[in-house]
Every structure is written in C-alpha cells, then in structure tokens.
Design a protein around this nucleic acid. Structure first.
Length: 569
RNA sequence: CGGGGUGUAGCGCAGACAGGUAGCGCGCAUGGUUUGGGACCAUGAGGUCGGAGGUUCAAAUCCUCUCACCCCGACCA
C-alpha cells in the first residue's frame, strides 16, 4: 500500500476526548473515528489489524474442532423472555420495533439463538460433542462506554458454544478452549493472566477471565504472588484476620451521641472497627435487605447479588430504611423482623461486637451471633483486598489492574433446559445438553495489544497483528536512484507476499520516521542516497533502538526469513 | 441514573469575567527554497461559535431550556 493513497491521516495532536493510551494512539494514528459514544468506524489500518486478529482466532478455533457459522443480530424478544434474560440484561439490551410493532432485540450474545438452533439439529448423543462459533458484531447498551475501544456499545466478538452429553465432556471442551485462548493471546503478542471470575448476566457456574495487565485497565484482579491464585475482585475470596474467641458477655446499651459511622462509633468507644458490626441496606429487586458485616470489611455487591439470586441490586436510600422501621446510623439486627438478614461469614469469628441498638444515639455492646440475633443467609459476601490473606495458601494477596480480553463459562444445562435442547443417550433416556460458552472481544484485544506494546513515539505492533509488516521508507525521492530502488523493492517484496506500507510521499525524513514510529509497523526499511552509496538499505525494528545496513541484494531473503521465523514461533 | 467537566475551522486552543464586523498554532491548497527525526518563505481557502428561545440598537460573550461528548461510580467481551 502506498501511503499517498492510504485513507486515514496521522494527527499531530491528540483529540482531547481520549485519555487512555490505546485510544489516544488509535486516534493519533488515524486508525479509527468516533461516530457516537462507544461507536466507532475503523479505518483501513485498524480494520487490517482486526482482520488479522480475527484470522488468528479462527485458526485456533478450527484447530480445536470448532465449526464456524453465522447467526443473526436481530432476535425476537420472546426468545429472551423464555430464558428470563430480557430482565437479566435489562437496559443493556438494545430493543427496537419492526413495522408490525413486534419487539426485536439486537443480540448482545447468542446463547438463546444457538441453543434453539442446536435443539433442531441434535437429537442423539451421536451428534455430540459440538463446538460452534461465529465472529460477529454484538450490541450492548452499556451504561457508560469508556476508554476508546475498551468498552463500547457495538463490538466485534468471537463467541463459541460447546455442547456435550455430560459434565466430563464439558470439562474437556472447556480445557480445549482454555488452551486455544492461550494460543490466541500468545500469537497476538499478549501476555495474559487467567483469573477466576463471576459469571454475571450470562449465567452458569465455573468461569474464567483472561486479563491483560495494563495498569490502566478497568478491572481489578486480586492475586497471590506465592501460590498463583488469582480472581477478579468481583469473585475474589480472602481470609480476614480471625478474631480470638472470648467469653460471651451480657448485652449492654451505651450512649453514642450523634455517632453514625463505624469510624465515629469505634473511635468514641475506643474499639477497633473489626470489633463492630456494620449494617448495610440494599434494595434487591425492590425488596429491602439487611446486610450485616464486620465493620472493617466492605460488601461485595456481586457476591451479594449471587447469594440473593436477584437481578438488580442497589444501596437503599435513607428514607427506605426509615420506612422499614429501622433507625439509620444505629441499625441493629437484634429484634428486627420482616426484613431479610444476610450476614457475612466474617461475623462468625470473634465475639462481643458493637452493633446498633435500633434506637437513636445508642449502640449495644457484646453482641453475639447466634445468641442475640439470627440471620436468613450466612455467606461470603466480603470484598477481598490486597494485603489480606490468600484463601489457598495464606500468603499476602496483591492487586493489579487489567483489561478483560476473554471470558469463558461453564453454562451447564441452564439454557438447554429452558429452551428444551435435549438428546437421547445410549440407554434411551433423554437429558439436557451440557453447554459452555467462550467469548473474545476483538476490538478490546486490539486496544489491549496497544496498551501493552507502545512507547512515547507510538504503537509497537506485535508482528502477527501488525497492519503491515514492513514500512518502506525512501528519503530524497527526488533522487532518481532512490526512487527507482524503492519502487523496485516495493514490487519485489510484494510479489514475495510480504506486506509493505510504502511511504511514497515527498516529505522530510522527520515526518516519515515519526509516522513510521506512530503507526508501529514492526520493520522499517530506509533507502537513501547515503545507504545506496554502500549498495545497502537500512533495517530497523520498531521494537529496537539500533538500525543496521543490509546489502540491497539480500534484502528480500533476509526480510522473508525474519518474518517467517517470527510467525512460526 | 448520581457526581464532576467540556462544546468556537479537520485537530489543539484563545476570545466570555467587562456585549460592538471571530482569532492563533497545526493541518489543507498554490508557488518557491529545503531534506537522516514532525523544515522555511510567500499567497490563499476554510467557522450556522453544539441547538432553541429570551434580554439588547447590537450576543461566541448575559439569562432560560435543551442536546452531545468526556471523566468518576452501578454494568461488561
């Protein structure tokens, strides 16, 4: 490709709206253009990168036994009502009406459609296992698009679905996909981390995420440097300090004038926050719930949501708490009725806690569970934090930020049961098909690749996903020898299937070098009167500082070898 | 949806407090001189000042409403 003809221009200045590196560089390099919040056009360079990523994914999916197909974006809302996921996705679902006033949704994912499809094509265990996938545009009306391509409302995603006769089959499919995913990230030049995750609105039990560690990612990962345990904060577990057992003392009311927060109360009564019980109120699907947790620990709302099996959860406002007959600021689980009480396991160890008295300006000392109050659900609903103990090996946990570039779930039979996808086994019995699903966001992967591979000059594309492999950079094009050599080399490299971006512009060297660096093409080949005097051209890798001269006669073979060697590793 | 911020030429910004014919840099066009890390000179094109309404002799500027976008939180590939 000749740069003089390429659609898309590099900018000198970065558009003000961008503040993540990948967003800034993609805009500065003229690779994409924003159409609306979370909606972008991809210009030729970005599109080439996406297609390369797509091909790598396709190759790995096919290698793992996947079969590619294509499902529709437009889906009848009834299909979503059948599984109840119209509610689970809620406002995240783009909906529209057709001319007959029939409601359709723009597919955010395709479990429903594929399960229905498989139901019509699978009757026997002989038809299983199956791995089906597509690479297609998804629509999600995100509450807040952000970070350029990190979170958008319309995006390319590869989604594969596995169908097996039983759990063991699912485990095998799952394992195959984990391996395929590792291959994909490695080939895209990304180092990633596999972490345990919550399964969210998709549903299911086991779930893992692939995180690219970036420092500016939108997800927080808790991990153990000692044993390798790692999980999304939404899911992460940790051992809190266990408090010593004490002899249970009798309840005692104490005055706590104008004390509302844990901090105020614990300072006033001179006890550590870990010796207090915090009351937090949530509205879960419209119902008020009373959450009791140790004063020094935060509630993990995702865990809470899962424990309650509800689809929407938010903090209650003060008026809602008061309406339920509870004294905000001095709320107590003792003697409460008519409200569901959820307690975190942290209140099991230790004794004689400070809690509210359900009376203004008053708290109660020596509160103990289960002596003084009962709970409806006791579960781990605590937020894990760096510095706490690893649940597996007791070492100190750390945390880091990352971008989620892949997510896999063991769905089990949730969808097959709801949508009637059953098969007949060897013994003639009918069972629901056991499913898994496996997603990768392509645009996000491209953004993550930039986050992980750039310097102050611009992008440093890993060769397998670079829009072009070679930046052919002649200087002094008015010099006929330079021009002729460059043209010949461009033709020659192209006819050897090398991908060349030819900077045929009559620009100063500075402009060309800066664009080459910004666009991040892995290999730069410079031709100038100076190199031609020695019968040479200059080769410089984007990832390295030093350039070297190569005889003109050997250039094509050297470049070919360089590239094939890299791609075959 | 809650909190914060920004809308003036393709991009980055000034002008607004104190109303009076819309400016700068980059980019773009033409001509010339340049060329190993974003060259220089000359000339030129390009703007409903996000939108609507109001105040005023006069509004980018003051007032009201509205829309869009960005950032922080609830959500996700």
């Amino acid at each position: 490709m000749r740069i003089s003809k390429l659609f898309g221009k590099t900018q000198r200045e970065i558009p003000a709206e961008a503040d993540t590196i990948s967003h800034q560089l993609l805009l500065k390099a003229g690779m994409m253009h924003q159409v609306a919040a979370g909606i972008y056009s991809y210009l030729p360079l970005a599109w080439r990168v996406l297609k390369k990523i797509e091909n790598i994914i396709r190759e790995e999916m096919d290698k793992a036994g996947g079969q590619e197909l294509m499902m529709p974006v437009l889906q009848p809302v009834e299909l979503w009502q059948e599984t109840g996921r119209d509610k689970a996705f809620g406002k995240g679902l783009f909906t529209l009406s057709d001319r007959r006033e029939h409601t359709l949704v723009l597919g955010p994912t395709h479990e429903e459609v594929i399960t229905q499809l498989v139901r019509h094509n699978v009757q026997s265990y002989r038809d299983l296992p199956l791995l089906l996938y597509q690479i297609q545009t998804k629509f999600r009306d995100e509450p807040r698009p952000r970070g350029g391509l990190v979170r958008v409302r319309e995006f390319l995603m590869k989604d594969l679905y596995s169908f097996d006769a039983d759990e063991e089959g699912l485990d095998q499919s799952y394992k195959k996909m984990l391996q395929a995913y590792q291959n994909i990230y490695r080939r895209c030049g990304l180092s990633n981390l596999l972490v345990e995750a919550d399964s969210g609105a998709i549903g299911g039990k086991d779930s893992h995420e692939f995180m690219v560690i970036t420092g500016t990612g939108e997800d927080e990962v808790i991990y153990c440097p000692s044993c390798g345990y790692s999980a999304n904060t939404e899911k992460a577990e940790s051992s809190k300090d266990n408090l010593p057992d004490e002899e249970l003392l009798p309840l005692e009311e104490v005055d706590t004038p104008s004390m509302f927060t844990i901090e105020e109360v614990s300072n006033f009564l001179k006890v550590s926050p870990s010796h207090t019980l915090k009351a937090v109120f949530y509205i879960a699907d419209g119902e008020l719930v009373f959450v009791v947790i140790r004063g020094d620990i935060e509630v993990n709302e995702v865990k809470l949501k899962n424990v309650l099996h509800c689809s929407e959860i938010r903090l209650a406002i003060e008026a809602e708490v008061i309406e339920a007959g509870i004294v905000a600021g001095s709320a107590s689980p003792i003697g409460i009725s008519g409200v569901k009480i959820i307690a975190d396991e942290s209140i099991i160890s230790g004794a004689n806690f400070i809690a509210g008295a359900n009376k203004a300006n008053t708290h109660v000392k020596n509160v103990n569970h289960p002596r003084d109050f009962g709970v409806d659900i006791m579960a781990d609903i605590a937020l894990a934090r760096a510095g706490e103990e690893c649940p597996k090996c007791r070492a100190k946990l750390s945390s880091m930020r990352g971008i989620e570039v892949g997510h896999v779930f063991k769905l089990g039979t949730v969808f097959s049961e709801k949508l009637g996808a059953f098969y007949i086994d060897v013994d003639g019995t009918s069972s629901p098909i056991v499913m898994g699903c496996y997603g990768i966001g392509l645009g996000r992967l491209m953004a993550a690749a930039i986050e992980q591979n750039h310097d102050d000059k611009g992008i440093i594309w890993p060769l397998p996903i670079a829009p072009y492999q070679i930046y052919l950079c002649p200087l002094h094009l008015e010099n006929h020898q330079v021009e002729a050599t460059a043209e010949n080399l461009y033709t020659e490299l192209g006819s050897n299937s090398l991908e060349v971006l030819f900077d045929d512009r009559k620009q100063s060297p500075g402009v060309k070098f800066n664009d080459a660096d910004l666009l991040g093409i892995p290999i730069r080949v410079t031709i100038s009167p100076r190199t031609l005097e020695k019968g040479s051209v200059e080769i410089k890798l984007r990832s390295e500082k030093e350039a070297r001269l190569l005889p003109l006669t050997r250039i094509t073979t050297v470049l070919e070898k360089l590239i094939t060697d890299y791609l075959s590793t």
